[in-house]
């Protein structure tokens, strides 16, 4: 029998890790003091709202936002005091994960996933061009009308 390729092992390992994550997550969601939720699973404008329930014994929390489910590659980590929701903006295209942790790094919430996919630049440019043309037409029309009026 031909030996299994490293790609195959890699795939199996990832699948097992994913299953382990799911099992762990489903078992431990209830154990977290806060349930983090996201306003949209997929956004086109680069901004997102995240909310959670009040944590009575915690005054400040840190929201970790990263590019992997394990939050090893954290891209933002704002410290939030007295808030139960936050609005973050300016995200580039990509898949992001977020969770709440306390000051010592203890995990306080489940991990949520959201995807940012900006609208195609071509479509946006087309609308921009239509807007510019329409605006120029309005200004020229008004200028001509006002001149003939005076």
């Amino acid at each position: 029998m031909a030996p299994k390729s490293p790609v195959y092992f890699n795939f199996v390992a990832k699948a097992l890790l994913f299953c382990a994550f799911l099992v762990h997550a489903s078992v431990s969601f209830g154990a977290f003091p806060a349930l983090l939720s996201v306003s949209d699973q997929k956004v086109s404008e680069g901004y997102i709202g995240l909310s959670w329930k009040q944590l009575p014994e915690v005054t400040a929390v840190q929201l970790q936002v990263g590019l992997d489910a394990g939050l090893e590659q954290v891209v933002r980590s704002p410290v939030l005091t007295g808030q139960q929701q936050v609005h973050l903006s300016g995200f580039a295209d990509g898949v992001y994960f977020a969770r709440l942790v306390d000051g010592s790094g203890g995990v306080l919430s489940n991990t949520v996933r959201f995807e940012v996919e900006h609208r195609p630049l071509r479509a946006a440019s087309l609308l921009f061009a239509i807007g510019a043309a329409l605006f120029c037409f309005l200004v020229i029309t008004l200028f001509r009308f006002a001149r003939s009026d005076s």
Partner: peptide, 8 residues
């Protein structure tokens, strides 16, 4: 993109 669309 969204900001470009927003301008006009």
């Amino acid at each position: 993109p969204a900001a470009i669309m927003f301008l006009f």
